[in-house]
Amino acid sequence: MTAPLVIGSVAYSPNVVPIWEGMRDYFAGTSTPIDFVMYSNYGRQVDALISGSLDLAWNTNLAWVRTVAQTDSACRALASRDTDLIFTTVFVARSGSGFTSLESLRGRRLVLGSRDSAQAAILPVHFLREAGLSEGDVNLTRIDSDVGKHGDTGRSELDALRAVLDDRADAAAIGINTWQAIGRGELLPGAFESFWTSPEYSHCTFTAMPSLEVERADPWVANLLAMDWENPQHRPILEMEGLQAWVPPRLEGYASLVKAVSEQGITARW
């Protein structure tokens, strides 16, 4: 019998267990069975991957970039969600605030999410820098309410939005998923509006070390990509994980984060 591939995932939500039990059930019916291990944070998961305790890690974009840095680019990205290839950061403010661009944030208060959130902290600072704004040009507030989970819980972004509502900040940088969760400003037009959306970048990806043979990895990826949104057994898992299709990763989509990590001196390990 084929030994199961052991996959690591971070417990960022109570749904993580049903998601991975569903994935385990799905793969039990394939040529590539899996088991899973939960971690409380991405740092510990990446350590486990590199030490050989895991065959695969379901990594955020920051966890991927850090794994690349720690392995001299020897690790491989195997697959992502369709939604991971088109991730964006959205800058939002109270409706009618008058922001029109990142430049208009000069001298204003911007609230960021947890410091290890690519979408709500690291990349927003990078985008400001690209727009010609240094950290001193904008009054930054950081809300580190889910550090370790790379912003996956969404909690720090909700806290950032509360800060804007409470007039403790003028604008917030959040991930497109949180912006969608609050209705993209359409649910209650008088509350929030977006004034700048970043270029698309890549988010999560399954990460493997070179020790995982291609003969084991490729069939597993094929089985993963075969999960079907129209299949009623697969769909609940896909819905909970926030995708309609598993797809090959888009590595060029990590370039902005690699640059941001370098610019901001974010360490490869913590």
């Binding site: 749904n15 939005l161 008088g190 509350a191």
Partner: peptide
């Protein structure tokens, strides 16, 4: 405008929903 305080309920709700599994 009642919008901002009403929106706070949605933020509370998203956070609360995120703390329970599907079906909770």
């Amino acid at each position: 405008s009642a919008a901002p305080s009403a929106m706070g309920v949605v933020l509370d709700l998203i956070e609360g929903i995120g703390r329970v599994p599907t079906g909770g």
